[in-house]
Amino acid sequence: MSTILVTGGTGNLGALVVTRLRDQGHEVRVLSRHSPEFPVDLRDGSGLDAAMAGAEVVVHCASSPRGGDEQAAGHLIRAARRSGTVAHVVYISIVGVDVVPLGYYETKLRVERLLEGSGLGFTILRTTQFHDLVAEVVDRVAKLPVALLPKGVRVQPIAVEEVADRLAELAVAAPAGRVADMGGPEIRTLEEWGRSYLAARGRGRRVVPVPLAGKAYGGFRRGGNLTPSRAVGRTTFAEFLERRG
């Protein structure tokens, strides 16, 4: 069995990956600033060398739309090189990072490029947005009397559990470069998803699609965030809502 580091191992996706790998019998180290065993700060790299000692695989799930991903990846890669034992870094990315000019997407793409040039074995998995993100977006706008959502933006949500299954599978396999994307089973506009979500929650908000401006919005309107040929997800949004109760 392997010793595997999981960054972001207490998050929505990372915690599921940790559980799956431990269930398979692997030693899993969860990296966190507040971990009693492996206190690590990816922002400056402190604690990484101790956490990496003897590890063979890193699953990099830690990410923040507020910034710092590129620097964190740099610290992680350099520590993995210094360890002399890490042979494989698995990275979770997003479908469309190379075609939708959104700042967060562009950062994710730069992290992909860092891994490709790192000299380490790596695997990159791109997926569409999680069901949870769609629900979070709609919840946020539904705090107003009218739910305003970007007009004409289609979304292909996927279950986070299915992505965790795939990451755990990739972590114990050989480095594979960029693997096939994963997309959810259905594609609908965000306003359609919004109406479905609010109806399921019994919330009487009217959904109003609003046209926006900018290159990022144009990228989403063109479907850069979609992968219809890789609609491999099984759990529908309705099933996700039912499971959430």
Rank of each mutant, 00 (worst) to 15 (best):
F220D: 09
V137C: 03
V141K: 05
D181T: 12
E186Y: 00
A176P: 05
Q156N: 07
P175M: 12
D132C: 00
P185I: 01
T127Q: 13
A199H: 13
L190A: 00
R154L: 01
D165E: 15
Q129T: 12
V134T: 14
A231R: 14
Q156A: 05
R140W: 12
R154W: 06
L149E: 08
E191M: 02
R126I: 01
V207M: 04
G202D: 07
Q156E: 09
A231W: 03
P185T: 08
R230S: 13
P157E: 06
L167H: 06
L148F: 14
V208D: 00
V138D: 04
L212N: 08
D139E: 15
N225F: 04
P211L: 03
R205C: 03
A135W: 02
G177R: 10
R126N: 08
T128M: 03
F130T: 02
G184Q: 02
V163L: 01
R126F: 00
Y217A: 04
I158P: 08
H131A: 12
S229H: 13
L149V: 15
P157H: 02
G183I: 07
T128G: 09
F130G: 04
Q129G: 00
P150L: 10
P157I: 03
V208L: 15
K215T: 13
M182K: 06
V207P: 13
E191Q: 14
L149P: 12
K143E: 14
G194Q: 09
Y217V: 07
F130M: 05
A164V: 04
V179K: 00
V134A: 14
G204Q: 13
R166L: 13
P211H: 02
D181Y: 03
R188L: 15
V138K: 01
P150S: 10
D165C: 11
L144E: 11
F220E: 11
E162H: 03
P175L: 11
G214L: 12
G152N: 10
Q156F: 02
A200G: 12
R230L: 08
L170H: 06
V155C: 07
R195E: 15
L133V: 14
I158V: 15
E162T: 09
E186H: 03
L198A: 11
G152V: 02
P175N: 09
V155Q: 14
V210D: 11
G177P: 11
T227F: 01
R205K: 15
R178F: 01
T227P: 00
R154E: 14
A159R: 06
L144P: 00
K151D: 14
G202K: 03
